[in-house]
Nucleic acid binder design. Structure first.
Lengths: 341, 341
DNA sequence: TGCCTGTATGTAAGCCCTTACATTTTCCAT
DNA sequence: ATGGAAAATGTAAGGGCTTACATACAGGCA
C-alpha cells in the first residue's frame, strides 16, 4: 500500500495525496476529504523511511543518559519523553554508562540515525578537561545539543540547569545556623554539577569558618549500594573525623547518611542532620523523612524541550537557562536557631 | 557526501561501495580496502533514511512502558536497552501511561515509525477483557510483539515472565509457617501479574484456612505516594480488620507497610512481618530492610531480547518462557518455626 | 588458442515519498 | 463572453541507498 494506490483509488495524482498527508492548504476541501476517506478506508500509513528521505527528518530526538535506571535520570528521561511526544517527536534512548568513550560512541550512533537533536541528560556529560568535550562540539556541528544540568560553551549547544551552587550554599548555611557546624559534604560524581555543589558547600563553610573546617568525602561506588556508602561514612568516623551533619550530593548518599546516623545511635535531627539532593522518592522512604533540595526537574525538562523546539524552528534561543532550586524541609533537619541579639 | 562521492573517489561503482558497506563477500579484498580507506578518510556515513528505505528496516525496536520513571520499569527499560544495543538495535522509548487508549495510540505511533518489533514492558499491557487486547494482536500482525511479565496468546506474540503465582504462594506459606496468620495482601495493579500474585496468595491462604480468612486490599493511587498507602493501611486497621503481616505486590507498597507498622508501634519482625516484590532498591532503604521477592528482571530481559532476535531472524522461538523468582530474606520476616512432631 | 566457469564489478531499476515547476481549472471583473 | 489572476492539480525529478541482472575479466582445461 503506497501513495500510488491511494492516488489511483482517489482519482488524483500522488502529489495531491502527498499534499493532503502533509497538511498543505493547496488542496480543495472536497479533494482533501475524498483522499482522507480513502486513506482511512484502506488503513494506509505513509512509509516513514521514504518520508524521512524526502523530508530529511523523522522527527526523532536522541536522549542520552548514563543510566536510565538511576532514580533521578529515570525521572528526567520520563519528563523529556513525555514532553517530546506532546510535540510529535519520538525519543531514541541511549544509555551510555559513565565512560567518555562509550558516550562518544553513543553520540556517533545517534548521529548515524539522523536524529534531529540530542539531549544529554545529566551533568556527567561535561568533563573538566576541555578536549574531553569535543564530542559534544562535534555533534553540535550537525544538530542542536541540549544539556540538562550542565553547561558547555559552544555553538549550537544549549543548557538548562538548576542553580546547584546556590542551593547547596543555602542548605549548608541553614544547617550551620541550626547549630551544626561539623558538616560533611558527601558526594560521588565528579561532574559538572558535582563541582558546583561542592563550591556552594565550600563557600558556605568559609563564612565564619567552622572549627572543623570543611569536611568532604568522595564516594566512588555503585549508586545503589547503600551499604557501601554507610561503610564509607563509618570509615570516615573511624578515621577520627567528627561530623554531625551531612550534606549529600544526592538522596541515595543522604539516605545512607541517615542510616549511618541511626546505626551510630545519633538521634535525628537532634544530634545529627542530613540534607539530600533531588527530592526523590527516597526522601520519603527513610525514617525520619529526608530534608532534600528539589531542583524542579520537571520544569527544567519542559524548558529544555521548549528551547530545543525553538532551535529546531530556527528561532534564536537562550544558550543557558538557570533555575533556582528549593529546600524541602522534612525530618532530618532542625529549624534555624533564632539568633538572640 | 553520498555513496556516489565515495564511488567516484575510489574509482568503483556505487554498487561496490554499497557491497562494502553491507559486508558482502562479493568484493575483492583489494577493492574493499580501498573503499574502506576512502570512507574513513572522508568521514562518510550512509544516510540512514535511504538505507531504511532500501532495506525496509532501521534496526529499531519500540519499547513501550507505562511509566519509565517507575523504579521497576526503569530497570526493565535499562536492561532492555542495553541488551538491544549490544545487538546493534536502537530503542524507541514510548511511555504510555496506564490507559488502554493511550497504549493503543502509542502502538500506532511505533508502527508508523516502522520499528522492527515492539516490547511491552510490564504486566499492565494485557487486559482481562479480551477485546481490550486487540491492539496487541493487531500490532503482532505486522511485527513481533514481546511481553515482559505478561502473557497473551496470539500469533507472533511472545512472553517472558516470572512465576508470580508461585513466588507469592511460597512467600505467603513462609510467613504463615513463621507464625503469622492474619496476613493482608496489599496490591495496586489489576494487571496480568497482579492477578497471578493474588491467586498465589489465595492459594496459600486456603491451605489449612486461617481464622481470619484471606485479607486483601486494593490500593488505587500514585505509585510513589507512600503516605497515601500508609493512610490506606490505617483505614483498614480502623475498620477493625486485624492483620500482622503484609504481602505486598511491590516494594513501594511493602515499604508503606513497614512504615505503617512502625507508626503503629509494632516491632518488626517480631510482631509484624512484611514481604515485598521486585527486590528493588527500596528494599534496602527501609528499616529494617525488606524481605522481598526477586523476579530476576535482568534474566527476563535478556531472554526477552534473545527471543525477539531469534524471531527477527525467522527462527522458531518459544511462545512463552517462565522463570521462577526467589525470596530474598532480610529483616522484615522471621524464620519459619520448626514444627515439633 | 579457445571455451568454460566462477568471481569481481557495473548498470539500472526500484524503494516511497516530497516538491519545484508546469499545467489546468475556477471564478471574478470587465 | 473573455482575459487574467488565483487556486487546484499534475508531472517529473530527485532524495541516497539496495540489489537483480548484465557484463567483464581471470584462470583452468582441452
Amino acid at each position: 500500500m503506497t501513495i500510488y494506490d491511494i492516488s489511483e483509488k482517489a482519482g488524483v495524482s500522488i502529489a495531491t495525496v502527498s499534499r493532503v498527508l502533509n497538511g498543505s492548504d493547496r488542496v480543495s476541501d472536497r479533494t482533501r476529504q475524498k483522499v482522507l476517506d480513502i486513506i482511512q478506508q484502506c488503513g494506509y500509513t505513509p512509509n516513514a523511511f521514504a518520508r524521512g528521505l524526502g523530508l530529511n527528518t523523522m522527527k526523532t530526538i536522541g536522549i542520552m543518559c548514563a543510566d536510565s535506571s538511576d532514580l533521578y535520570l529515570a525521572k528526567a528521561v520520563y519528563y523529556i519523553e513525555q514532553e517530546l511526544r506532546a510535540y510529535g517527536y519520538d525519543s531514541l534512548l541511549c544509555c551510555t554508562g559513565y565512560e567518555l568513550e562509550s558516550k562518544s560512541a553513543s553520540m556517533d550512533l545517534l548521529l548515524t540515525k539522523k536524529v534531529d537533536g540530542v539531549i544529554l541528560a545529566g551533568s556527567n556529560f561535561v568533563y573538566e578537561r576541555e578536549p574531553d568535550n569535543r564530542y559534544i562540539a562535534e555533534a553540535a556541528a550537525r544538530i542542536p545539543v541540549m544539556l540538562l544540568n550542565a553547561a558547555f560553551d559552544a555553538p549550537n549547544v544549549y543548557s538548562v540547569m538548576s542553580d546547584d551552587c546556590k542551593s547547596v550554599y543555602e542548605a549548608t548555611m541553614q544547617m550551620r545556623s541550626s547549630g551544626t557546624e561539623d558538616i560533611l559534604y558527601f558526594y560521588n560524581a565528579d561532574s559538572y554539577s558535582g563541582k558546583r555543589k561542592l563550591s556552594g558547600f565550600l563557600a558556605a563553610m568559609e563564612e565564619a569558618p567552622a572549627a572543623s573546617g570543611p569536611l568532604t568525602e568522595f564516594y566512588h561506588g555503585s549508586h545503589e549500594d547503600i551499604h557501601a556508602m554507610i561503610g564509607h561514612l563509618k570509615a570516615v568516623h573511624d578515621r577520627g573525623v567528627a561530623f554531625h551533619g551531612v550534606i549529600a550530593a544526592d538522596d541515595n548518599l543522604a539516605l545512607a547518611a541517615v542510616k549511618y546516623a541511626a546505626e551510630m545511635g545519633y538521634r535525628i535531627p537532634q544530634e545529627f542532620s542530613v540534607i539530600g539532593y533531588n527530592n526523590s522518592m527516597l526522601a520519603i522512604c527513610c525514617q525520619p523523612e529526608l530534608t532534600s533540595i528539589d531542583n524542579r526537574l520537571e520544569t527544567l525538562c519542559q524548558h529544555l524541550i521548549a528551547t530545543l523546539l525553538g532551535v529546531l524552528e530556527g528561532k534564536e534561543m537562550p544558550k543557558r537557562t538557570v533555575f533556582s532550586g528549593e529546600l524541602v524541609q522534612r525530618g532530618t533537619t532542625r529549624p534555624e536557631l533564632t539568633r538572640t541579639e
